[in-house]
Design a protein around this nucleic acid. Structure first.
Lengths: 154, 154
DNA sequence: TATTGTTATACTCTATAACTATA
DNA sequence: TATAGTTATAGAGTATAACAATA
């Protein structure tokens, strides 16, 4: 019973799917993080701005939390921060006073646009070295994998 | 210049590689996290134990930090914690008194083995629904992507 | 002098529970 | 009563700098 195979056939570290996903993500983000830091944005804050860019309709916090994989309390504080910095706007839904609606402000949109070229440069870099079709196929596979309902936690 | 295409051709949120990687990782981890919590382990602590399982030789903290994508100060505090719980052992390298050597204790190894079956169950679940060959190909592609030197942060 | 690892500090995010206000 | 969102609280990780011990 050695270290490599003794743990009830636990896969080798190199073959771990979560680690492979994390490693690939780190490789893709390494260049990008310093740029976010220059704009005083955390990775999570960027995800929120990025999610808001994806739609031209205001989004409710609950939906935003799902799309960005953030917990509601984390998002709530982040929205206060982003609103204080003038990057987003909040309004109250007309049909239900409990619901908020979040959207990018022009300043927020400008910030995303300022950061976007560097993001695109990284993509071009990946596409050149990895291949456009190969990257597209990888994205499709990742999408399919995530769509598998692996079941709720027991 | 609308919200979808106005940001200097920023890719749609759905096509974002870091988001796709995060989404897939969340899908794979969702089942697993509660099990870690039952054993009072964070995701990062699990990565450390998991990395130590992958080798039967003691590992220096610097190497461990690289492999687990943790910063040295974070790892340093975690190692104190894990040592206090009797899950790892530390020793000093004979040839260089500055260097530490970290390895799993028998208790730590037993803990990994206790958690492993659930990890394997998730893999079997994925393999059944996604396909063994398809999963292997995905892992290979992720490995190649991470190996691309996308350059140091500017 | 350079390197390994730890400690100090401030901030952010995670996670759960409790609370407010609407419905 | 149930739901949307916020606030409270405790803990862990991120990030940078400063430090001790060793090389």
């Amino acid at each position: 019973m050695d270290a490599m195979s003794g743990s009830g056939t636990l896969r080798p570290f190199e073959q771990s799917l979560p680690m492979a996903l994390l490693r690939a993500r780190e490789a893709a983000m390494r260049r990008f993080r310093p740029l976010l830091a220059e704009h005083d944005l955390t990775e999570q804050q960027w995800r929120v701005l990025r999610a808001l860019t994806a739609t031209d309709r205001p989004v409710e916090p609950t939906i935003l939390a799902e799309r960005t994989f953030l917990l509601a309390p984390s998002l709530s504080r982040m929205l206060s921060n982003l609103e204080g910095r003038g990057l987003i706007r909040r309004s109250v839904a007309a049909h239900d006073q409990r619901r908020s609606l979040i959207e990018l402000s022009p300043t927020g949109r400008a910030l995303v646009q300022a950061v976007a070229p560097s993001s695109e440069a990284t993509y071009r870099h990946i596409e050149e070295r990895f291949g456009v079709d190969r990257l597209q196929h990888l994205l499709d596979e990742l999408h399919d994998l995530a769509a598998l309902d692996l079941g709720e936690p027991t």
